[in-house]
Design a protein around this nucleic acid. Structure first.
Lengths: 109, 109
DNA sequence: ATAAAACGCAACTTCCTGGTTGCACTTTTC
DNA sequence: GAAAAGTGCAACCAGGAAGTTGCGTTTTAT
């Protein structure tokens, strides 16, 4: 059987999560509450602009969605891409598990 | 309840996976077979050195382990960190799920 | 109607990343 | 023992990422 090469978007997904600030933003938003940029910047030692950039990265990865409400733009968590990541982890884990099984069978012989 | 901020190493784990080349290397190695740098470089359009650098990144993240055997260094998949990633995804998903539950309960009232 | 809040855009800086090349070193192989 | 295979190390380069500052625009509040 062919080894399935992971899609390019899977890598970008991981890359979007590969930053402490973004990870923390996503963790906050995962409680289902919608937050503005100012709200997400409060309590951070970063600039509002920096937070904005990170949010755009998360949005491009599909992990977050934004909509303008009045003068502020609200961001919300979007869980769908998480499944893609799980799918990759599962495929890797399964291959690894299969290898272990074969190894055990071989040793027992 | 406090929102648990993800550890800094979780971010580096994601970062290590946030590259197509590294993702592909890890996918190959996840079949349990040990491979040399030359073996992993074969079939790639990249230099052996580039592959080496990627392998070092994976190794620092703990996703791979290496050992010198004669003149070549063998790399093997290391599944433990995968659980850390799953743990993060689960925590995020659970928070999200809880939020949905509360929302449904509220609407039904 | 003014002031303040919340944001977008753009320029700029700094640092990291992905990648290459060149060379030296150690093991194998013939 | 000489050639070839497999690496490691260091320098170097281009481009992208993270972050800041400055300024203009649109809403909201007083």
């Amino acid at each position: 059987m062919l080894i399935e090469t992971p899609g390019r978007d899977t890598a970008s997904l991981f890359a979007a999560l590969g930053d402490r600030t973004r990870l923390s933003l996503l963790t906050k938003l995962s409680d289902g509450q919608t937050r503005s940029i100012a709200g997400l910047s409060a309590g951070t030692d970063l600039t509002r602009q920096a937070i904005t950039k990170h949010l755009r990265v998360l949005e491009e990865a599909g992990l977050v969605i934004s909509s303008k409400v009045g003068r502020e733009s609200q961001f919300a968590f979007r869980p769908e891409p998480i499944d893609d990541i799980r799918a990759y982890l599962d495929s890797v884990s399964q291959q690894w598990g299969d290898a272990l099984s074969r190894l055990r069978a071989f040793v027992k012989t």
